[in-house]
């Protein structure tokens, strides 16, 4: 994958849940302002890998990591590295939309408030900017105080993206962001991803290979915890170098 302009790098990354290895010797680079997709069968380690990028795996018991993960060249697991700060810079959107049971406005304002912003005018600005970036503003601007739970699934997911954007991250991790959405809502999220890459690094985990092909610039194929092949999305889907990748992409697996 692209060597210059990378924002995240891993080197010989290994991860175990207890005695079970989940990642083996993963070495990769993630370029900034591009969309990188991770594909592979269930349990191959792709979600585990992106959870390393913002230290979400710290919250899992018996999880052990060796190797290096760098964000802007700094080891994020180094002593003195602050996981809260890393999670602000590396935001995450999950498979199922998970808005807080609060108003639309409060969902977006929550993060900035936690980070100490209390100025109402500034919060208003942040909420509008984030909702606009998440392509949701036009649909909700007249009901910002309404409960987020009343939004459709697709709108809720865009709200979660807006919530992530509100704290001005540099990287957005998306773990199967469309798997609970209908095709129209999915298309909106995909369009949004394409816009987000102008300003952010986006890493998306997906089971849907057509989606990976549609939205990403780079694709990594993982299998049994290993990064089998990384390359431009065109190369991976047109002529992968590894037979394993070829077999997975063409559905000749197992």
């Amino acid at each position: 994958m692209m060597s210059n302009n990378s924002i995240i790098r891993t080197a010989h990354l290994n991860l175990w849940y207890g005695d079970t290895p989940a990642l083996r010797e993963v070495t990769m680079q993630v370029p900034d302002r591009r969309v990188t997709a991770l594909i592979g069968p269930s349990g191959c380690g792709k979600s585990t890998l992106i959870r390393c990028f913002n230290r979400m795996n710290d919250l899992v018991d018996h999880c052990r990591i060796t190797g290096r993960i760098e964000f802007h060249g700094n080891d994020i697991y180094a002593k003195g590295s602050d996981p809260v700060e890393i999670r602000r810079k590396v935001g995450m959107v999950f498979q199922k939309p998970n808005p807080f049971p609060k108003s639309i406005y409060e969902n977006v304002a929550y993060g900035p408030r936690v980070h100490g912003i209390n100025d109402t005018a500034l919060l208003d600005q942040i909420v509008e900017r984030s909702l606009r970036q998440a392509a949701l503003w036009e649909e909700v601007k007249d009901r910002l105080q309404a409960s987020a739970m009343g939004l459709s699934g697709g709108q809720q997911q865009r709200l979660c993206i807006a919530r992530t954007l509100a704290v001005e991250p540099e990287v957005i991790l998306m773990d199967e962001p469309c798997s609970a959405l209908d095709p129209i809502a999915t298309a909106k999220i995909e369009t949004l991803i394409n816009e987000l890459k102008q300003q952010y690094c986006v890493i998306i985990v997906t089971h849907n290979m057509q989606q990976a092909a549609r939205v990403s610039d780079y694709t990594g194929f993982m299998y049994l915890g290993e990064m089998i092949e990384c390359g431009t999305t065109t190369q991976i889907f047109e002529h992968p170098k590894q037979e394993l990748t070829e077999n997975y992409i063409t559905g000749r697996f197992g």
Partner: peptide
Amino acid sequence: YQPMAKDMR
């Protein structure tokens, strides 16, 4: 089927 890789080729 939206074939990919070798199937597409």
